[in-house]
Amino acid sequence: MTENAAWLNEQIDQLAQQQAKFTDRAFWLALKQLIAEQDRRADQLGGEVDGRTWSPDQW
């Protein structure tokens, strides 16, 4: 996990902990999971872009 991602997770955890309502806490924590999913997908897509751009077949 990057430093930025760790920092963002901390912000979301803090906000979630401050919510009195269970369903509100659930929302922010689920958003944290979705952001982690975004990061994974961005890594995968970025890797695929690199791979396809540097494919020897295309040289």
Binding site: L31, Q38, D39, L45
Partner: peptide, 23 residues
């Protein structure tokens, strides 16, 4: 804090759209 988190999320959504378009 809520707005900050939302803005990071929205930026990541936009970045993903861009990556998908590029691909």
């Amino acid at each position: 804090k809520g707005k900050l988190i939302a803005s990071v999320f929205e930026q990541k959504s936009a970045d993903l759209d861009q990556l998908a378009d590029t691909l």
